[in-house]
Design a protein around this nucleic acid. Structure first.
Lengths: 312, 312
DNA sequence: ATAATTTATGAAACCGGTACCAGGTCAACT
DNA sequence: AGTTGACCTGGTACCGGTTTCATAAATTAT
């Protein structure tokens, strides 16, 4: 593999001069620049990215920490990150955790080892404090409501309001007894808390039997539908933690020829569109874009993305 | 930032010895190993990834070239790659091209500059020959039917057979006039060719009016539905190039209260499940897994993934 | 008792770049 | 004439590791 020293030796000029030519810098005589460029072309030379990154101390690579790559929620965020990153000349590396704290920690260590310029946590298992400790090794952005005091930059969606919007709409539309479906864990930790808050505000206390937890997929939603149909048939509407989950609930009622209930989904995916379910679009691509912009900035801003309730 | 030399100096041993400790290699006396480990812990030392990669000449990173990140077809492949890569200790970087040949070329140059150990092309715009030229800089795997002679390793799905299966099933089920919907371009270049072949085999010549091209999304499918409904109403079934596209076709007929036609989708996504459409599952996660395994192997094998027609 | 291994360690070259600094030329300005 | 500053070039330290090689002590085999 030919390197910069080969080019220097063969051209008769110094490594410094070759480096200047490579980086299109001033202060190189035209004839030498030309000769060096010719030799580089002849030898089919390309500067080594790793050496350059090591020397410069930056990789132009951002790691995106997520539980799985195949979930539509994360896929939309990643899409926003990838496209914005692409435009800015950054490489995006996917870092799946499978909710394993050790793995998450390992990615933080990789940040420390300078494998990435920064990390975006679309979801976290560890504590905020653990992330905070790694801040000095690179910019860390999280995608959740930062609350009052958050030491990290954050991009987050306006769940607080959109949940209230959705539930208020449900109430106005005459739904009396609204169930809630939440995800398995603290996947989007603030999400569950805010759903409860909004519920409290609009409908009052959330009864245990109106809550079904542990849903991530369509099949989970189907099970949730079964739960409400069999054990809490008074429920006439459900706020689901995702369109595909909502589709599962809807489909259970349909498959069993029950009186349909109103299912409100989230993310504005194709499934809610096909079934005509109301949904909340959190504008996740915009969230990803904001997260990326924060990670390459050196600010600690908190960026709010408006979300939007879509009646159907 | 503390480095290996600091550790060496402070421990009183040489850089070589410290390196041996870091890499858990034999031939280090227990007392020295212990002392060095203690110092590393005290100084909160982590070896620099870039320096290591540069020295070793490998990055443990694979680039995945794709048109967009947000398309379900590619998302499923990426999922397979990411999960397999994760298990093997590799990092996966997403490289979107937006079908720009210059961008694709740029990624090949990045392979040459040693930014990746290998590349997986889930789709390509450039010629096979252009990829071939870069083989010497790292393993390049493509995800398409390699045909008779393909100089590159390839992982591909059994389209040839599943298309015939699907169309044969349609014929047996009594559908007389089958339309075909194909993607915008050579996104999965072999795909279009094989669809035509299968059509030829089962139904004979594919009339121009039975073909609608340029579909990628649900909305494209909706337009395809409009096309068939208005300009070729004799069509009683359509083979679509994806479930979401198929859903669009189906929905157009439904929205306009037309006699429904049979729509056969592809990828076995939630949309076909919700609408009860038959589909072809190409097992794209398995495809991604196979592609990853090929990229880290040094072989030039061609790996076939069986696909499966799902009646509905 | 001697030869052949195995174990243990450090010096130094190497991976392939960047960037600071010193030194030199030459035209322009005071 | 002397100073200033822009232009050009090379030497070399540096980024932070890995790895080969030489050397020597401790075991083991013959």
């Amino acid at each position: 593999m030919t390197n910069i020293h080969d080019i220097a030796r063969l051209s008769g000029y110094s490594v410094s001069t070759v480096s200047r030519v490579i980086n299109h810098r001033k202060y190189v005589a035209d004839d030498k620049r030309l000769k060096i460029e010719t030799i580089m072309r002849e030898l089919d030379y390309v500067p080594n990215r790793l050496a350059r990154d090591l020397s410069r101390g930056a990789t132009k690579t951002i790691g995106v920490v997520l539980p799985y790559a195949n979930h539509p929620y994360f896929a939309r965020i990643v899409d926003g990150i990838v496209n914005t990153g692409f435009a800015a000349g950054y490489k995006i590396t996917l870092l799946p955790t499978h909710y394993d704290l050790t793995v998450e920690r390992n990615y933080l260590e990789q940040l420390r080892s300078k494998a990435f310029d920064g990390l975006i946590f679309t979801s976290r298992s560890g504590s905020m404090a653990s992330l905070e400790r790694y801040q000095k090794y690179g910019q860390i952005v999280c995608c959740e409501d930062p609350g009052k005091y958050c030491p990290l930059p954050a991009a987050y969606t306006d769940r607080a309001n959109s949940y209230v919007d959705a539930l208020t709409w449900a109430k106005k539309s005459g739904y009396q007894n609204v169930g809630v479906v939440l995800s398995r864990d603290n996947m989007i930790s603030a999400s569950a808390r805010m759903t409860r808050q909004a519920y409290q505000q609009v409908y009052g206390d959330l009864a245990d039997k109106n809550l079904f937890e542990g849903t991530v997929t369509y099949d989970d939603g189907y099970r949730a539908g079964e739960y409400f149909a069999k054990l809490n048939p008074a429920v006439d509407a459900v706020l689901a933690n995702g369109d595909d989950i909502g589709a599962g609930i809807y489909q259970y009622y349909k498959d069993h020829q029950l009186t349909p209930i109103k299912v409100i989904g989230q993310e504005n995916l194709l499934s809610s569109r096909l079934l005509g379910l109301p949904t909340i679009d959190h504008h996740l691509e915009a969230l990803g874009q904001a997260a990326f912009e924060l990670v390459i900035s050196q600010t600690k801003k908190h960026q709010l993305i408006k979300s939007e309730f879509i009646e159907r």
